[in-house]
Design a binder for these strands. Structure first.
Lengths: 200, 200
DNA sequence: AGAAGTTAAGTGGTCAGACCAGTTGTTGAC
DNA sequence: GTCAACAACTGGTCTGACCACTTAACTTCT
């Protein structure tokens, strides 16, 4: 009756096992062979289940050492999805546009939530676009947005190089310190968005 | 030197194969045995790679029949991820916020690019949030944004139910027809954003 | 005793071969 | 022409073997 596939079943059993044992990031799972014996299935089925857990970013396997719980939030998902998405020129155009839109949104949000402490954090950082904007996105205090931005930026860097004048960092810092969202967005639009659209 | 794992390598090779052959939803992939021989790897490695593709929602396997391309957008992954990732409230909060921000951004963009034809497309559609907003996001003519939105929305639906009054659709349609971005955003903020933030 | 090198056991990674359980298309009897 | 039986595929699973790598225990030498 239950034509449920073994590796699916195994997937859930391992998942339950993790929960019940209360495994924390860094903890080690039983070896593949032990899991196979304990769950009364073949090792290949265990492996297919583990692949799924790995893809979900729940576990990490280290050859010769074992299988370990991974820290929360490092989802393979978005990375993988991303690599499927980007293929043709059409996609590159979309990538640029999406990145600009999301950065502007993050900037606005970050500006609203900017605290003195966070501002210091940004002001001190080396003036590279990646580091600078990362701090900004982090200031949104939204981890999911950060993940999405990281992926977009990562892909972006493989296609284009970003080059903004040092005035950008200065003026942006000023706007952020004043917590003036409108000005921050204006600076962004002037130095980044216009820059990108003319570079194509 | 390249200790790259075979099943990872195989994963990408199959992915490339799919692209180059231009396989469409419904099309059949070579059998596992044939893939193994053609790529010169063991069948188990092929299977682990296929598991990953399956989890990503790209393919579907039918016992006795074969492996087939799956229609776009049916991510197995999402449902699984939902049960894992969206456990903490922090993650849910981020999800809601991100979805709202991206929808607002899409709405603005779509409004700018709205054509009469596209508007008809939207106006005709059944008044469910998913279908209605999907058309809006499609009107941005940015496939990457659409992908991101689909993922977010899928997640979201597993956690919350969206319920907006029918006035929302009417007023939004009006704003879109007038191509008035400001009004469209205002309608969105009134009916959706405020709604979500009070629901917690 | 302490340090350095060696060995053995354990782990994930991979492969080959076997068998099961379904599907499909062919064949052949009626 | 129909329909049942069969053969040839497909994915699903298990087993056992080997490789590459890590760790820890065990020598051995100084």
């Amino acid at each position: 009756m239950t034509t449920s596939k073994v590796y699916i079943e195994t997937f859930w059993q391992i998942h339950r096992m993790i929960e019940e044992a209360g495994l924390q990031p860094g903890d080690r799972l039983p070896s593949e062979r032990e899991l196979a014996e304990r769950l009364q299935v073949g090792r290949s089925s265990v492996r297919e289940a583990l692949r799924a857990l790995e893809l979900l970013g729940l576990i990490e396997t280290r050859r010769g050492e074992g299988t370990f719980m991974k820290p929360f939030g490092e989802h393979q998902l978005i990375q993988l999805l991303g690599s499927f998405i980007l293929q043709g020129n059409r996609e590159k155009r979309d990538l640029v546009e999406t990145k600009l839109l999301i950065e502007r949104t993050c900037l606005q949000l970050a500006c609203e939530r900017m605290t003195e402490e966070k501002f210091e954090h940004i002001a001190q950082v080396e003036h590279t676009y990646h580091l600078f904007f990362r701090r900004i996105v982090e200031a949104t205090d939204n981890y999911l947005l950060l993940r999405i931005w990281l992926v977009l930026h990562d892909f972006f860097e493989h296609v284009y190089t970003i080059d903004v004048p040092s005035e950008f960092y200065d003026e942006m810092s000023q706007a952020l310190q004043k917590k003036c969202c409108v000005e921050a967005v204006a600076v962004y639009e002037r130095y980044v968005m216009q820059n990108m659209s003319k570079d194509k």
